[in-house]
Design a protein around this nucleic acid. Structure first.
Length: 569
DNA sequence: AAGGATTGTCATTTG
DNA sequence: GACAAATGACAATCC
């Protein structure tokens, strides 16, 4: 304990010395730091008492600082870059930006727990307006606490120094409060961080780091690490200090473990989706380093999600050592059912097609071959053992599959046998056109083809036979279909006529019944009228001798059944 | 094994 | 009259 305390004090003194060198241009006297150093221990004591309370507010502080440091497009939801140093918009890396956001969004994020990584990542976001942002940040409780402690030990005659310290500390230490509350660490600004960058950049510039850390970034990591701003040369040259300082900052994560550590991050979380949830929806596929392939089994419906990382986005050559890719960080298999693993061999075929379609869609250019090689190399190292040779057989596989599909359309196989026979003949005689083309092409095109190609008698005859048979085959099919349709239509017509006949018969019967009823009524009326008729003597007429008849003009007559017995009414 | 259904092919007819 | 399409007839194949 004492040794570490002494060591830390020495390191702090070194830091004060360096900060003093940096600020000497501002006219700050060395005594300011000395006075500060004498009372720093008291501040540390006071700060430890409040450490518990501070940790509770740590997440809130981090969140507010993040809000202050970034702006989010309200329409698109995209995080807008705020690169103050740089107007270099081309250096902005959305993938890395989002990755950073994703890392830092969680309370227990490994990045936030790692001071070095946190400083590295957050140093990308200096405020656009330092003065305004400083005022905003002063309202934050933790910052106010630091500044109160600082102000208590800084002579009132040096407000410029306080401002300077605030500017330097802004946006870096606020995200990750120091392990102890020494002002020394609080004032570690871009100068210190730049040194960290320079040290870590060397680590990250190795291909192994770039590949292993690549996750979903779209650029090699060395481009992500920003240039160190205004690095003082003496500072950078002090390698001993660098080492000790890094040890102090990253006591739990020494620089040599950075690669392993960053690799561990993705392995711990197991999936890239957990690491970069936003990335999947924002980065366009053609710019994305990863391809997500979902393999689904027809029978069980279970799926196997795979994330394939394309190497096309690397602007620099990368060592394709298979040992680097044989980790889950590169090809992550997430079976949703245990059967998926057991039936991997069945899925390989489906997987091939998915990969091929994705690859073809993504890379229609001449680089697709290289892309296939790289993807094939990646897949070859995976436990699924997808061979890269298969990836090159896109056309052959597709055509054979089409052939299988075509053949399977005929349940009885007769047509496929016929087609295969003509195709075999065409192959034997080396016909310049496919059977399908010979059959389906127009008459003019066929004649032109015959005249264009120099064909011998056998080829010419075969082409005509193929076309004739094919045409006749289609004609026979359509004819049979028409006949069948005609039969169906005739059957429907017969049924319709049968129904009409039934309807007419019913109507006829109904009409006959109505006629009988009318005749009955008429007979009854006739009898009633005839019975009321009387002759000049008041005697009724005999129905045997007379008959009652009426004309169309409404008059009616009593006529004798014999001609001489008629009498007009 | 017989028979129905389907399809391809040839010969002939039709437009 | 030539030609493509339509159709009848027959054979091969499958169920």
């Amino acid at each position: 304990m004492e040794e570490s305390g002494v060591l830390r004090s020495e390191q702090e003194i070194s830091l004060i010395d360096i900060l003093w060198r940096q600020d000497i241009d501002l006219g700050v006297e060395r005594e300011a730091f000395d006075v500060h150093f004498q009372e720093r221990e008291l501040d540390a004591q006071r700060a430890r008492v409040q450490e518990e309370e501070r940790k509770k507010r740590e997440s809130e502080l981090e969140e507010r600082v993040m809000l202050a440091l970034r702006k989010m497009d309200k329409e698109t939801g995209e995080i807008l870059p705020q690169n103050v140093q740089g107007d270099d918009s081309t250096s902005f890396n959305p993938g890395f930006e989002l990755m950073t956001e994703a890392f830092l969004s969680g309370q227990g994020s490994p990045i936030t727990q790692n001071p070095l990584l946190s400083a590295l990542l957050l140093s990308e976001k200096p405020p656009p307006d330092k003065e305004k942002a400083s005022i905003e940040l002063l309202a934050l409780p933790d910052l106010q606490h630091y500044l109160d402690a600082l102000e208590a030990h800084v002579p009132e005659s040096q407000p410029e120094l306080l401002e300077k310290i605030m500017d330097n500390s802004y946006g870096h230490q606020l995200h990750e409060p120091p392990e102890d509350n020494t002002v020394l660490e609080t004032v570690s600004g871009p100068h210190v961080l730049a040194h960290i960058h320079s040290g870590c950049a060397e680590i990250m510039e190795t291909p192994e780091y770039a590949v292993s850390h690549s996750g979903k970034t779209t650029q090699p990591l060395p481009q992500i690490i920003p240039e160190a701003p205004e690095i003082e040369q003496p500072f950078l040259d002090t390698e001993d200090f660098t080492e000790s300082f890094l040890d102090t900052i990253m006591s739990t994560n020494p620089p040599e473990n950075l690669n392993q550590r960053s690799f561990q991050l993705s392995s711990d979380l197991n999936t890239q989706e957990e690491l970069f949830p936003e990335l999947e929806n924002i980065i366009e596929p053609e710019h994305s380093l990863c391809q997500h392939v979902s393999v689904q089994k027809d029978s069980s419906g279970s799926t196997c999600d795979m994330t394939l990382f394309s190497l096309e986005s690397f602007s620099e050559p990368i060592d394709l050592d298979p040992s680097l890719y044989a980790d889950d960080a590169f090809i992550t298999v997430q079976p949703e059912a245990e059967e998926v693993r057991r039936s991997q061999s069945d899925q390989i075929e489906l997987f091939d097609l998915s990969v091929l379609s994705d690859v073809v869609d993504l890379q229609p250019s001449e680089t697709s071959s290289q892309h296939l090689t790289q993807v094939g190399t990646l897949l070859h190292t995976d436990s699924l053992s997808v061979h890269s040779e298969d990836l090159f057989e896109t056309e052959a596989t597709t055509s054979s599959l089409c052939e299988i599909t075509t053949s399977s359309q005929s349940p009885q196989g007769h047509r496929s046998w016929s087609v295969c026979r003509d195709e075999e003949r065409a192959r034997t005689l080396l016909l310049p056109l496919s059977v399908d083309d010979i059959i389906t092409m127009s008459v003019d095109a066929f004649n032109e083809a015959i005249s264009t190609y120099e064909l011998n008698e056998g080829q010419l005859s075969l082409m005509r036979d193929i076309r004739r048979r094919g045409k006749n085959k289609m004609a026979a099919q359509s004819c049979r279909k028409r006949k069948l349709d005609s039969l169906v239509d005739l059957e429907a017509e017969v049924e319709e006529l049968r129904e009409e006949r039934e309807r007419v018969m019913l109507e006829k019967e109904s009409n006959a019944k109505a006629l009988r009823e009318t005749r009955g009524k008429l007979s009854k009326l006739y009898s009633e009228v005839f019975s009321q008729l009387r002759d000049e003597h008041g005697n009724p007429y005999s129905t045997k001798e007379y008959t009652l008849q009426y004309s169309t003009d409404g008059r009616f007559f009593i006529l004798p059944r014999s001609p001489h017995a008629s009498k007009h009414t």
